[in-house]
Design a protein around this nucleic acid. Structure first.
Lengths: 208, 208
DNA sequence: CGTAGTGGATAGTGTGAGTATCTACCTGAG
DNA sequence: CTCAGGTAGATACTCACACTATCCACTACG
C-alpha cells in the first residue's frame, strides 16, 4: 500500500509517519522508484505498537525507539535488564531530579528485603523506590508497614502473573515484544484498575 | 523568611517560586512593604508537596494546581470524584486521544463486574480501562482471565489498603491531602515495586 | 549612603512532538 | 500523451510546557 493508505488505516497522519521513520521508530517502505515506496502489514502493526507505547503507555518517542530497538535486536536481554530500560518516560518519571539520601535508600532496601527481593546497589529501580518513599513521607504521609507491605504484596502478585504469562508464550519471536508491552501497559492497567477499585471501595464503605 | 531563604531551604529557584505563585500553586508571601514579603513554613511545606506531585508523581503544573485547589477548598468532595481529577497527567496519560469502541467498553465492564465494581457509564476511568485493554490486545497481548483477574485482585488489595489508611487518619484537615498524595504517589510506588518484584522474580525463576 | 536583595511584570529559552513547505519526480485516469 | 495529484526526502516552522532572564522601581541594612 502507499503511504496515504497506511495513514488512513492506522489513523496516523502522513507527516507523522514520515517523522517516525526519520526518528527510527518505523522501518522505511520498500522503494519501488525514487519517490514511491510500498508499505505493508508490518508497518501497520508497528504503528499500532508505537501508538500503544506512546499514547497509552506514556512513553516518549525516544524511549519508544530504544525499546523498539531492543525488540528488533537479535540478542536476548535478561528480563530484569529490560525493566530498567522502560523507566525513561515522557515526563522523566521519578527517574531524575537529584540524589536520594542514604536513609531513604536504607528504607527502600529494608522493604525489599522483607519481601525477599534482592536489589542491586546501583540499580535505578532502587533509587526510584527510595525517591517515591521519600516523597510520600515528605508530603506528610506516614509510611506504615501494613500499607507498604500490602503494596509490595500486590506488586509481587502482578510480577508472578507476568512471569506466568510469559512462560505460556510459545512464539519465541514474540516474547520480547510481550515483555515490553506487558511491562509498559501493565503498569497503566494496574493504575486504572486501582482507581476503579478505589472508587468502588469508597462507595462500599461510605455509601453512595 | 525572605524569598531567597525559601529558595535555599526548598531547593527551588527564586524564579521558579515566582512562577508557581503566578500559576496559583503557591500562595503569595505576606507583604510587609510594596516590595518585600514574608514567607513561612507553610510555603516550604507547599513547595515540598508541589515537588512530590510534579517531580515524583509526574503531574503537570496545571494538574497540580487543580489538585491543590481541591485540597485547599472547604468542600469535601467524594473520594471517588477525586480519583478522576488526577487523571490529567503531564503526558496526557491514556486519558485522551480519540474514542473507544463499544466492544472495548464491554470488556472493561465485564472485568469490573467480575470484581464487584460498579462503574458509572460516563466515567473517565471506564474509558481509560477500556483504552488500556484495547492497546494491550492491539499489541498482540492476549488478555487471559487469569492475568486480568489477578491484576484486578492486586488493585483491589491496594484500594482496601488505601481506605484502611485513610480511616486511620485522625487529622481531618489532612484527609484530602492524604488522599491526593496517596493516590498520585501510591501509583508510582506500586509501579516501582512491581518493577522490582519482576526483576527478583526473573532471578528466582531463571537463576542469575 | 549605597549596594545587594525584592515584588511584580513581561519577554525569552529549550525541549519534545509533531506540521508545513519545497523540490523533484512518478503514476494513472482520461 | 497529458497533467492533476500523490510521493520521498529534506528543511524549516509551530505549539505547548515549564521554566529563566530582564527590567523597574523600590527597600533593607551594614
Amino acid at each position: 500500500m502507499r503511504i496515504s493508505e497506511l495513514s488512513e488505516r492506522s489513523g496516523v497522519s502522513v507527516p507523522t509517519i514520515k517523522y517516525y521513520v526519520r526518528e527510527g521508530l518505523l522501518h522505511r517502505g520498500e522503494l519501488t522508484s525514487p519517490n514511491q515506496a510500498r508499505y505493508d502489514e508490518s508497518h501497520l502493526d508497528r504503528l499500532r505498537l508505537i501508538g500503544a507505547l506512546t499514547e497509552v503507555g506514556g512513553l516518549s518517542v525516544a524511549a519508544t525507539r530504544d525499546l523498539l530497538q531492543v525488540i528488533d535486536g537479535d540478542q536476548r536481554p535478561e528480563l530484569g535488564d529490560l525493566m530498567g530500560l522502560t523507566l525513561k518516560r515522557v515526563d522523566g518519571g521519578p527517574g531524575d531530579g537529584g540524589d536520594v539520601s542514604e536513609e531513604d535508600l536504607a528504607a527502600a532496601d529494608a522493604l525489599a528485603e522483607r519481601h525477599g527481593w534482592h536489589v542491586h546497589p546501583g540499580s535505578a529501580l532502587r533509587e526510584e523506590l527510595a525517591r517515591v518513599m521519600a516523597a510520600l513521607e515528605g508530603s506528610g504521609f506516614e509510611l506504615t508497614p501494613e500499607w507498604l507491605d500490602g503494596y509490595a504484596d500486590a506488586a509481587g502478585q502482578t510480577a508472578r502473573l507476568d512471569h506466568d504469562y510469559v512462560e505460556g508464550v510459545t512464539n519465541l519471536d514474540g516474547v520480547l515484544r510481550t515483555v515490553v508491552v506487558g511491562t509498559v501497559l501493565g503498569e497503566r492497567l494496574l493504575a486504572s484498575l486501582r482507581r476503579l477499585a478505589q472508587a468502588s471501595e469508597a462507595r462500599r464503605r461510605h455509601g453512595g
